[in-house]
Measured scan of single mutants.
Amino acid sequence: MSGNGNAAATAEENSPKMRVIRVGTRKSQLARIQTDSVVATLKASYPGLQFEIIAMSTTGDKILDTALSKIGEKSLFTKELEHALEKNEVDLVVHSLKDLPTVLPPGFTIGAICKRENPHDAVVFHPKFVGKTLETLPEKSVVGTSSLRRAAQLQRKFPHLEFRSIRGNLNTRLRKLDEQQEFSAIILATAGLQRMGWHNRVGQILHPEECMYAVGQGALGVEVRAKDQDILDLVGVLHDPETLLRCIAERAFLRHLEGGCSVPVAVHTAMKDGQLYLTGGVWSLDGSDSIQETMQATIHVPAQHEDGPEDDPQLVGITARNIPRGPQLAAQNLGISLANLLLSKGAKNILDVARQLNDAH
């Protein structure tokens, strides 16, 4: 009898209710805020589980004197976190989706994509230029951005401005803007500013005609071990179906173009009346040469937790077992079709030249 009692006690200790789920994140304040929001949602869904947040620095956090596009290494903000995932030191990792490459290392998958916040870019102005827009900034004003995508589009749109690289986390960039006289304004992701509670610093939100956004911008991705079915089931509740389908289309477009950090590629997606609209573009580094096109596809946005595919093969690095396969494939095909259209119009040449120029500098 006593033996059975011990077995029952052991089973209770090993039951999922007692389990601590370890969540990996970057150390920056924004990353911690984003991770806290994901953990809060998981806690609400699984009140019996405990969650421990483990923060670590990544290569991208450490190399702050070089433009991201020049470092010449993929997975700048993800490699150390993936290493911890691989060694079973954490069970899942919360990322900004735009930091996750469209091809993940073997053994990993994006197990959830959370509801997207505003994906557009924002302009934050130096205190002396508050009330201005990019259009009304004085001639030769210097605007800071760490992104080739932003610089290429904005140089084309605002030729009277000069664009220079600015690195560091959000706090560091804002301090550089406010305390030094080098920059009249800087460009940042609206979602990051909003998550930090800095709505009052948003001086201008850039519309798609001015600057399309990065693939996955404004959404959070939760990376897990691809074979860890328990954790895949656990994080599945975080999937937002519309965000998922938009981001599958965007990531398929980028992957098929073979774009990345070192080339200016941008997108804009919208879901309306059962249609998914995808606009994508590529630019030369100075913005003088560009190709942009829009395509659409009829896609039914499923309700969360309709029964999805059981075999769960990944699409552009994403596993969404609780979302039907048909809409996911339709979104992926839309991204591939748009990429093929741009490639047929000469996108590869623009991107190759951009890559060579970026590598040469």
Rank of each mutant, 00 (worst) to 15 (best):
H160M: 15
D286K: 05
R251S: 05
P327C: 02
G280M: 00
T78W: 04
Q296A: 02
D311R: 10
H207F: 08
Q304A: 15
R195D: 00
L148A: 02
G216T: 02
M212A: 03
E82F: 15
R355D: 15
L68Q: 06
A55Y: 11
P159V: 14
G287P: 03
W283G: 13
R355L: 11
Q296M: 02
G72V: 10
G107E: 10
M56T: 13
K62Q: 15
K98A: 04
A303L: 15
E242K: 10
P101C: 02
V143L: 11
E73C: 07
G274I: 01
P47L: 06
H207Q: 13
D178M: 12
S75D: 06
L104I: 12
Q50F: 09
I187N: 06
K132M: 13
M56L: 13
T133A: 08
K79C: 10
L315Q: 04
G326W: 10
T102Q: 06
G131D: 10
V263K: 15
S165P: 14
Q155K: 13
T269K: 00
A122K: 03
L76W: 10
S262I: 13
L42N: 00
H207T: 13
A266L: 03
G60P: 03
A330S: 08
P208N: 03
V123N: 00
A214S: 07
V103A: 07
G216L: 02
A226W: 15
V263R: 06
T58N: 10
Q180F: 03
S147D: 06
G274A: 15
D61R: 00
L315P: 09
T41Y: 10
I187L: 09
H268G: 02
E242D: 13
P47V: 12
S146M: 06
T133L: 08
A360C: 00
K87F: 08
G144R: 07
T269M: 05
L154N: 05
V124A: 12
F253P: 04
T66S: 13
P302Q: 05
D312G: 10
K157W: 05
Q194S: 04
K128P: 02
R255N: 04
F108C: 10
P119T: 12
K176E: 08
R175Y: 06
V130E: 15
L81T: 09
A84S: 09
R156N: 12
F158V: 07
K272N: 15
A347C: 03
Q204M: 00
G203L: 01
V123D: 03
P105S: 09
N169H: 11
P127N: 00
E162G: 08
V94G: 04
V353R: 07
R325T: 09
D352E: 04
E258S: 07
G221H: 06
S288A: 13
K70A: 09
A297M: 01
A266P: 02
S344I: 14
R201Y: 15
K70D: 09
C114Y: 07
E223Q: 05
L285G: 15
V142Q: 06
R201I: 15
I63P: 12
P309Y: 02
C247H: 01
L42T: 05
H256F: 15
T294C: 02
P106D: 11
E250S: 02
I350A: 05
K345R: 07
V130G: 07
S337Q: 01
L154R: 04
Q314I: 07
E306N: 15
F129Q: 13
P159Y: 05
V143R: 03
R173Y: 01
V103D: 09
H199E: 10
